[in-house]
Design a protein around this nucleic acid. Structure first.
Lengths: 214, 214
DNA sequence: GTTTGTTAACGGTACCGTTCCGTTTCCCTA
DNA sequence: TAGGGAAACGGAACGGTACCGTTAACAAAC
């Protein structure tokens, strides 16, 4: 796309408009759901005319799917040489901090909620958010399995489903939820999954890992 | 409530109207979500005047929460003397059949999706649907744990979260899903949880268990 | 000056929560 | 047995708001 091809004639599109629209669409989607989001409100919130939206996306579902897709943050980058248990416990605090945020919690819930009626949105989330994280995690699980750090009968995919699913389930549960509670919960899940808590080397501190969760 | 207290004067409310309204509200909620459901449409679908709805429930959220609450089916009744593994594998087929139904799948997704913006609906589901099932299952898990049929470090609540969460996660995943696939998946989850597959006694057939799921 | 982007305004539809109808169904008293 | 009162019923309409998808007119970039 950065290829030579001549620039199309006429006035080029404002790239800032794309970003503003996607951001506004995501905010409204998180707060009001698909059915409660209208192109008109997205346009108003983005400070843009309706036609500016319609020109780029043909409808609500397509727009929201694009917004979800654009919302993914930096791809995960797990250290391949660190044992799974060390990674898990080391990242637990940062993980908890991240997924407990109301905005994240609400977005996950919304995406889940649309899976039946608007599969495109769920598919966008799954492809651009969930799958990359699973792909990054899988080799660590397989290595742990090969080294005997996990029960022999472990199926990596099912294990990931169970861990992510449990966290998701916990997030969706009614009632307040703070980061400390969630951290404890994460550790319980790791333990239940069969991971041994690593004994922290003296002076070693938990190493934050950016962007994770179900 | 069946107590003596005199019947209030005037025409009594039509109980059929309650049922029709709740049914219509649940259908519309499943199909269009909270934000896409209007009292007006509920009334029309139920063949009832708007006022008949407003007389009973003060607003949309309250109505839908009541509809979700009323949609719960017969309480589970697990045989306390059967080993957990036998119950799990015996009920897997019926379970799979049940939770794969589009209506169930969609309802779970919708409820999950409202957990952030409309906690009352999620709370109704949790209290009247999830909790009773967990309460029925817990003693079986504790017994299995005591008998050594589960890993010693097992935390019953976390285990239930992981099993239910995994299934939920699988339900929300995009793409088609048939009962046979789901049955295999359920069995994978049971195995991953640490349950040993029971060797079926000759002539013994899977025993259906009514109404389960996340 | 041609192409495209942006904005403002269009008519039409749906829903809101409320308020009237005229009717129906029950309880209580005369 | 005959009435009268109280409440619920379906249906229609209220003014007000929001959104739909499109079109016409102005502005900007090439």
């Amino acid at each position: 796309m950065t290829a030579p091809g001549r620039r199309p004639p006429g006035r080029p599109r404002d790239p800032g408009a794309d970003a503003a629209i996607l951001r506004a669409a995501l905010d409204l989607f998180i707060e009001h759901g698909v059915e409660g989001t209208s192109i008109e409100r997205v346009a108003k919130a983005a400070g843009v005319g309706k036609l500016t939206v319609y020109r780029r996306w043909s409808g609500k579902e397509e727009l929201i799917a694009a917004a979800v897709e654009a919302a993914r943050d930096d791809p995960v980058d797990l250290p391949a040489d660190t044992p799974l248990a060390a990674v898990a416990w080391g990242a637990a605090a940062a993980q908890a901090e991240h997924i407990v945020q109301p905005r994240f919690r609400a977005m996950v819930a919304r995406v889940l909620g649309t899976s039946a009626s608007h599969p495109a949105i769920m598919a966008a989330y799954w492809t651009h958010y969930v799958e990359p994280r699973r792909a990054a995690l899988r080799p660590l699980i397989e290595r742990a399995l090969a080294e005997g750090a996990l029960p022999a009968h472990t199926d990596p995919d099912v294990l990931m489903d169970m861990m992510a699913g449990a966290v998701l389930y916990r997030l969706a549960r009614p009632g307040p939820l703070d980061a400390a509670t969630m951290r404890r919960y994460l550790e319980d899940v790791y333990a239940q999954a069969g991971l041994e808590r690593p004994r922290p080397a003296p002076g070693e501190q938990s190493e934050p890992e950016r962007g994770g969760g179900p």
